[in-house]
Simulated scan of single mutants.
Amino acid sequence: MTKICPNCQAENEDKSDFCQKCGKKIPKTVKIPKQDTPSRGVLKGWWDKQNSGVKIISVIGGCCLGVIIILVVMSALFPVTSLILEKNDVLRDNLTVQYILKGDTDVNAKVYISSTELNLNNTEVRVDEKGNFEYQQQLPKNLTELSVSITAKAPNKSQKEASLMYTKHN
């Protein structure tokens, strides 16, 4: 083992009491400053200097970033068709009961509506160039409940489904 001169950093034999280069006395024990090594990188040194608050915020931020990356990758690998129902209105007068369903989806999606009460089974609803759709249906006056399922399907995406329940109140 060698001794390092604290004055000029020259290497000296372990048994030396004086530096062979500058002649200064070498203490019996010499503190050697730690240097960043591959096992102790720059980030490790930075991490060790931080207080617990910074460490907690860093860990939480890293986790959030990880979740965002996973969501972006999942949405690229498994895209889902969008389906947003904007309005579900029932207009009534003395003669008719009109059921109106409006919504929007992907521009290139197809929308299908199903209802056992109305004898509809995957009836296609027209989607305009902006992805909007509207479906209107006359309801029988004696109908008290209505269940409607809407399915949107777009090429290369998994389908999206929504269900609505209409209950007539007297």
Rank of each mutant, 00 (worst) to 15 (best):
G66E: 06
G66A: 10
G66S: 09
V67R: 00
V67N: 02
I68H: 00
I68C: 15
I68G: 13
I68W: 07
I69Q: 04
I69F: 09
I70R: 01
L71Y: 05
V72Q: 07
V73M: 02
V73I: 15
V73D: 02
V73W: 01
M74C: 04
M74V: 12
S75E: 13
L77G: 09
L77A: 09
L77E: 07
F78W: 08
F78H: 08
F78N: 08
F78E: 06
F78G: 01
P79W: 02
P79C: 07
P79E: 07
V80Y: 04
S82V: 12
S82P: 02
S82Q: 11
L83W: 06
L83N: 09
L83P: 04
I84M: 09
I84T: 15
I84N: 14
L85N: 12
L85A: 08
L85I: 15
E86C: 03
E86G: 13
E86W: 01
K87A: 13
K87N: 10
K87Y: 06
K87H: 11
N88V: 14
D89P: 01
V90W: 01
V90A: 08
R92H: 07
R92D: 04
R92P: 01
D93V: 02
D93E: 04
N94R: 08
L95E: 11
L95F: 10
T96H: 15
T96D: 11
V97G: 02
V97D: 11
V97F: 02
Q98Y: 07
Y99A: 12
I100M: 08
K102A: 09
D104E: 14
T105A: 03
D106V: 04
D106Q: 06
V107F: 08
V107R: 15
N108M: 13
N108G: 04
N108Q: 13
N108I: 06
K110W: 04
V111D: 05
V111P: 04
Y112S: 05
I113V: 15
S114F: 04
S115D: 09
T116A: 13
E117W: 02
L118K: 06
L118F: 08
L118A: 10
L118W: 07
L118H: 03
N119F: 10
N119A: 12
L120Y: 14
L120R: 07
N121A: 13
N121M: 11
N122A: 10
T123N: 12
E124A: 14
V125T: 07
V125H: 01
R126S: 09
R126G: 03
R126E: 13
R126V: 13
R126M: 10
V127Q: 06
V127G: 02
E129D: 11
E129C: 00
E129G: 11
K130I: 01
K130A: 13
K130M: 08
G131R: 00
G131K: 03
N132F: 13
N132C: 07
F133I: 01
F133H: 00
F133S: 00
F133E: 03
F133Y: 07
